[in-house]
Write a protein that binds this DNA or RNA. Structure first.
Lengths: 234, 234
DNA sequence: CGGGATATTGAATCATGTCAATTTCCGTGG
DNA sequence: CCACGGAAATTGACATGATTCAATATCCCG
């Protein structure tokens, strides 16, 4: 399936959701890029860029869901992260993309040339600062996952995953979220197998901690989840 | 044990080892900081800063070895990374240190106020660029470890570890490196137990792939190691 | 109302963890 | 210089959480 590309237009249309919901909106330095953006539409399971591709563009998810992926030769797969509406990917790279990016569902993206980002940052300290901040936030999330993968049990991983997802999921009523990705995607994100993901979700459901369907999930007992997730802060 | 602190002095003394061993040395923007540096000396197993501390300073290892550490309430431990001579830590932070930092061996550090780094970056695009680059390199290493922890077996993890260490270890003759850290440290870095680390090292030794002693290690069969490590590139 | 993909469940196996001894190393003091 | 002692490393035996393999069950989509 091919993506449709639209040339730059309606500027304000795809702006970042304001970081601070109340108070005077902080100016978002990334907005400088809007004029260089193009809008792309993809069907489900479509590759946006491959691992190792020159990092020519970065992207913002307008709607839908994207996953980043790495493979070992023998097929073992690692899902780096899931990107939701409003989130940016492909920006925190050196010269090449260290992960491939694929759509999970039908997705609309806004694409920007990284060359322009870098160029603008040279003369705009606010943008430069913002770029570093984004990289550092990304780093912190990745370090958190390092702890999850290195030291947590299957149940703890699922609890952490569900809670993180709940935090990031845009405004779906209290504790009610949908899971656009497959169980296999979740497994490859958490360093588990599909079967283990299923079993753990079933167990959490049995104990009344969550409610799950194939594509959705509801948090019933947040306390138990927080407990299981072993989160020091939050 | 208390650290001795020396006031700023001999500027060039603790400069970064030139990134490019041959060719015209690229000017290193971080050198701007040298005038704000202080030298610290620590004994072994000394805490440099705690997890959650305000990120007031960053550090360069002059000699010795440092580990970064996170703990789960029940004592499970994750070693983020080992820092060797010439390497910097505590720089890639937002407001607080997300890991504690401890010396592994006797260590000499050079310490810099982060506030100065950030301030200088505002007016020096080259420094700002360098800061982001460091964050991105750090991110990439962490993502690599994510794959290791999520998808590799114990043997593959040890092979990857040994090879990475070999790459970073400053000029110790071909394939001959010392391991300043304990087996427990290695285990907590690789998401394994001490016992597993011992057994895997013993197995690799038995098969003639490496030579190990308590504090040192020699690579005998690099091909096998690369194979085991499942490295797509390098 | 099929049919293929995805999810779920069960049973058996395996890699790694746990627990429990040793053994080795190495600094220290006699 | 050597014996001692404590910490770290190693090894063995056993336990277990997660994987693997296999069989349904369920959900969509056409």
């Amino acid at each position: 399936m091919q993506a449709s590309i639209q040339t730059p237009q309606a500027k304000a249309r795809h702006a970042l959701p304001t970081a601070t919901p109340a108070g005077p909106a902080t100016p978002e330095p990334l907005d400088l890029l809007e004029q260089f953006g193009a809008t792309l539409r993809f069907g489900r399971d479509h590759e946006i860029h491959a691992e190792g591709d020159a990092a020519e563009f970065c992207y913002r998810v307008v709607s839908g869901c994207v996953r980043t992926v790495r493979l070992l030769e023998d097929g073992r797969r690692q899902v780096g992260e899931f990107l939701l509406a409003g989130e940016v990917f492909g920006l925190d790279e050196l010269d090449t993309h260290s992960f491939a990016a694929e759509t999970v569902t039908e997705t609309v993206l806004r694409r920007y040339p990284r060359r322009m980002v870098e160029a603008l940052a040279e003369s705009r300290p606010a943008l430069a600062r913002r770029l570093r901040q984004l990289a550092l936030e990304h780093l912190r999330v990745t370090q958190e996952r390092t702890l999850l993968l290195g030291r947590k049990t299957a149940t703890e991983r699922l609890a952490s995953f569900v809670l993180e997802f709940d935090r990031r999921m845009p405004a779906s009523g209290r504790g009610l979220l949908d899971l656009p990705m497959s169980r296999t995607d979740i497994a490859d994100h958490l360093g588990l197998t599909v079967e283990t993901v299923c079993r753990v979700l079933a167990a959490l459901k049995r104990e009344g901690t969550i409610q799950v369907s194939r594509t959705g999930l509801q948090l019933l007992d947040r306390t138990t989840l927080l407990d299981l997730a072993c989160e020091t802060r939050h």
